[in-house]
C-alpha cells in the first residue's frame, strides 16, 4: 500500500489511526470497495493520503452523506471519519438517528478532547477543568461519552468501542470488528483517543502521559 505524505501536525494521532484503518481494509480485500468520507475539522486533511476513494463533506454531515452513499451502493464499505466535535456536537442529531436506524456505516471518531483545526477550543469530550481557548479557566462540564450514549439506541449486531492510538493491537482488532459489523449489515462506531500535542501544548513524553491520563476518564474496550 502506498500512502501519500500526511498533512497533519507533527505528533498528531490521525495518521496512525488512518494507516491501521487502511491496512485493515486491505486485509479484508475491500480497498476498491471502501469509500472514506471526511468530516470537516482535522479529518479533512486525510483527503489525499490513503490509496482509497476519499472525499470531504461538511462539518457534522459526514454520517448522513455516507449513509446516502451506502444505501445507493450497498456493496461498498463506507467509513465516516470525524472528530469529536463533528460527531458529538454539530453532527450528534444525525449520528443518533443513523445509529438508531442501524445504518451500515462505520463511524470513526478521533477524540483528542479539543477542536484541533480551529486552535483548541472546548469540545463535547473536553475534560472537566481542562483549559482550552474557550475555557481559559478550565472547562465546567463533564465530558461526553459517545459510544456509551449510543449503547441504548443501537440494534443487536452493531459494534461500539473505544481504543487509543497507542494501542495498535486493539485498534486493529476493532477495525476488523467494525468491518465485520458492516458486512453483516450493521452500524458501527469506534472512538479513538488521540494525540494533539499542538493544542495540548505538550511535548514527547508529556503527550503520551496525557493520552494515558485520558484513558482514566474514557474507558477503552468494547462498549
Amino acid at each position: 500500500m502506498e500512502f501519500k505524505p500526511a498533512k497533519f501536525c507533527p505528533g498528531c494521532g490521525y495518521p496512525i489511526a488512518l494507516m491501521l484503518l487502511a491496512k485493515a481494509i486491505e486485509k479484508a480485500g475491500l480497498s476498491k470497495k471502501a469509500v472514506i468520507g471526511l468530516d470537516i475539522g482535522c479529518a479533512l486533511l486525510a483527503w489525499d493520503h490513503l490509496p482509497i476513494n476519499t472525499f470531504q463533506t461538511h462539518h457534522g454531515r459526514v454520517t448522513s452523506t455516507m449513509l446516502g452513499f451506502k444505501r445507493a451502493k450497498p456493496d461498498s464499505f463506507c467509513v465516516a471519519v470525524t472528530g469529536d466535535g463533528g460527531a458529538y456536537a454539530i453532527g450528534l442529531q444525525n449520528l443518533l438517528h443513523a445509529a438508531k436506524r442501524d445504518e451500515p456505516v462505520f463511524v470513526l471518531v478521533i477524540n483528542n478532547t479539543v477542536y484541533g483545526m480551529t486552535g483548541g477550543q472546548s469540545a463535547p469530550t473536553t475534560l472537566k477543568n481542562q483549559k482550552t481557548d474557550t475555557h481559559p479557566e478550565g472547562n465546567l462540564d463533564e465530558p461526553f461519552f459517545g459510544p456509551e450514549l449510543l449503547k441504548n439506541l443501537v440494534a443487536a449486531g452493531a459494534f461500539l468501542a473505544r481504543t487509543a492510538v497507542n494501542e495498535p493491537k486493539q485498534m486493529q482488532e476493532f477495525f476488523e470488528r467494525a468491518i465485520a459489523a458492516q458486512k453483516a449489515g450493521h452500524f458501527s462506531l469506534l472512538e479513538i483517543l488521540s494525540f494533539c500535542p499542538t493544542n495540548w501544548r505538550t511535548r514527547g513524553a508529556e503527550t503520551i502521559a496525557y493520552l494515558e491520563s485520558l484513558k482514566q476518564a474514557f474507558k477503552t474496550g468494547e462498549v
Binding site: G37, F55, T57, H58, G60, R61, S64, T65, M66, L67, G68, F69, K70, R71, A72, K73, S76, Q93, N94, L96, H97
Partner: peptide, 26 residues
C-alpha cells in the same frame, strides 16, 4: 419507491449528496 425519512432536512440533503456521488438519481 425507495425513500428514507430523515431526522431533519440536513440529513435529507446530505443523504442526497452521498447517493448522487454513488451514481444514484436521488
Amino acid at each position: 419507491q425507495k425513500y428514507l425519512q430523515t431526522e431533519d432536512e440536513i440529513a435529507a440533503g446530505f443523504g442526497v449528496c452521498g447517493a448522487v456521488i454513488a451514481g444514484q438519481k436521488a
